[in-house]
Design a protein around this nucleic acid. Sequence first.
DNA 1: CAATGCTTGTTATACTGTTACATATGAGAC
DNA 2: GTCTCATATGTAACAGTATAACAAGCATTG
Lengths: 168, 168
Amino acid sequence: MHRNPGPRGTCAHEETHGHRLNGDAVESRARSYAVSKGVPFTPMRQSVLALLAASGKPMSAYEIAEKVSDARKLKAVQVYRALEFLQEAGCVHRLASRSAYFACDHLHGEGETVVFMVCAQCGAVQEAASELVARGLRGAAKTTGFRPRHPMIEVEGECAECAGTPER
Amino acid sequence: MHRNPGPRGTCAHEETHGHRLNGDAVESRARSYAVSKGVPFTPMRQSVLALLAASGKPMSAYEIAEKVSDARKLKAVQVYRALEFLQEAGCVHRLASRSAYFACDHLHGEGETVVFMVCAQCGAVQEAASELVARGLRGAAKTTGFRPRHPMIEVEGECAECAGTPER
DNA sequence: CAATGCTTGTTATACTGTTACATATGAGAC
DNA sequence: GTCTCATATGTAACAGTATAACAAGCATTG
Ligand SMILES: [Zn+2]
Ligand SMILES: [Zn+2]
Ligand SMILES: [Zn+2]
Ligand SMILES: [Zn+2]
């Protein structure tokens, strides 16, 4: 469903949406990953990813379960299973600060240190890789001999729109 | 309980303990905060803080409820209330990546950007403030006009001890 | 004493996530 | 085709995390 709607351009009513992303590109990344693992990209996985990509904002697993495809009401465990696959595929991230999940259309390199910037007003998430942050983390670790493996960086704040349009 | 045990030096069996911290100093910080807010530093708050400080490792709220003072079995809500106070007082942090709480004996400045380094093996947490990370975050935010407020940085990895003594 | 403000005790409930097991589906192997 | 195997799905129960609501206690103060 909702395949090939043409180019996903910016649309006029951003306030109801999260950061617009290219759902087709995200989905094709998921498909590639599925192929590479020799597993199917099932309708279940497709639906969850499509919902997240269309929303563009973080949603809790239960929120996803309610809203997926307007049809069959999913159980939480089904959503978690789909999310597990999508996270492995790199199409979805988990926001620990909110226990929420969101679609990502970036292609993250292996050692990349990614910063999630979460708007406290509208919930939208922006991502940025920062080599400077990565260096800072390595420096912090070195002072104590800590061996860093998986950094998790989430910054709460206000996105440009919400900061410019307070309380709207 | 376990007041004035003299200087808290390193002890011989670190594997069962987290990073040793000065429980007295932490508690006195909590007392100061209580005074400054005109509220009491109650036995409830004292017990929870003492347990966390003695353990030196992150514990879940329910774990705290079970282990506090060996006596009266606390309800979760009581633990959460104590933790709320202690977090405001700056004596306890929450680890979002583990939904766990740990005592902190640092005195964090207002805008300080703190990195939590969590050992995947032993669970111990080390903290370090990094101005370099702070600059990196500001840089990442600037590219999109994001206004950062509360960074949350948790790095999973291995502490020096566990990295040096794998699988022991 | 009475009023106020905060803490505590208690119950219930919401939200988040996992385990276990039965069933279905789909791709090779025979 | 059918068997077999691995994986995905359906279903139920449960474990773990966190908050809401309200009664009761205990202090300080007027
Ligand atoms: Zn991403
Ligand atoms: Zn916003
Ligand atoms: Zn700290
Ligand atoms: Zn360790």
